[in-house]
Design a protein around this nucleic acid. Structure first.
Length: 190
DNA sequence: TAGGCCATCTGGTCCT
DNA sequence: AGGACCAGATGGCCTA
């Protein structure tokens, strides 16, 4: 079953801190449906935002009920900030995935590659290019001086250590064939 | 409807 | 100490 070519989805960030989908605390009620979930999140979000608006200033004395409330509010605030950073981090990661998709040749470009497809294709594309370069340069890259072709040495080490390359894959045709096969298997209903 | 993929939240751990 | 990174959990969206 394939899931391709979806329009990019934009979620409304729940911004809740008192019981998210990921919160496994057993003492918190778990929403039983998406609708309930959304509703619950919305109300919690409002409460959290209210707390933030109220807690913008520090009060003297963090002991006692007021102090506990302050600590709780600052904890909520830290969590919200942490969530935001995590969202940004994931967006950065997704941007990198998108940039990678755009430089990997693949068939049926109208369909978006999944993340795992992107990584797998990229890996084999690199292998294919490496083998091609080695063949064309006879293991010696222009501009590389020194005792030996480092790329070739690295390539040989990879083969010796991992043993991931079969006999046919030691040649660029092998890589290209594998890459080509993979492209088609990804795109044509595997 | 099941399954794949994804976004988000969250708590733990690592790093600076 | 605070931020980055990571992995698990959860629910939404989409396709076959």
């Amino acid at each position: 079953m394939k899931t391709k070519n979806r329009p990019p989805r934009r979620r409304v960030p729940p911004q809740n801190t008192e019981g998210s989908p990921g919160d496994q605390s057993p003492d918190r009620p778990q929403p039983s449906s998406g609708a309930q979930m959304a509703k619950g999140l919305r109300s919690r979000t409002v409460r959290a935002q209210g707390a933030r608006a109220e807690g913008g200033r520090r009060r003297p004395g963090l002991s006692g009920p007021a102090g506990r409330r302050d600590r709780r509010e600052s904890s909520v605030q830290r969590r919200l900030e942490s969530n935001e950073r995590e969202r940004q981090r994931m967006h950065t990661l997704n941007n990198a995935f998108q940039a990678l998709r755009e430089v990997i040749p693949h068939v049926r470009a109208d369909k978006k590659l999944s993340k795992i497809e992107t990584l797998t294709l990229a890996k084999n594309y690199i292998k294919s290019l490496t083998a091609t370069i080695l063949t064309m340069s006879s293991g010696r890259l222009p501009g590389l001086e020194g005792p030996g072709p480092k790329l070739y040495q690295h390539y040989q080490q990879q083969q010796a250590a991992g043993g991931t390359l079969g006999a046919t894959e030691a040649q660029p045709e092998g890589h290209l064939q594998k890459y080509s096969t993979q492209i088609h298997s990804f795109r044509e209903g595997s």
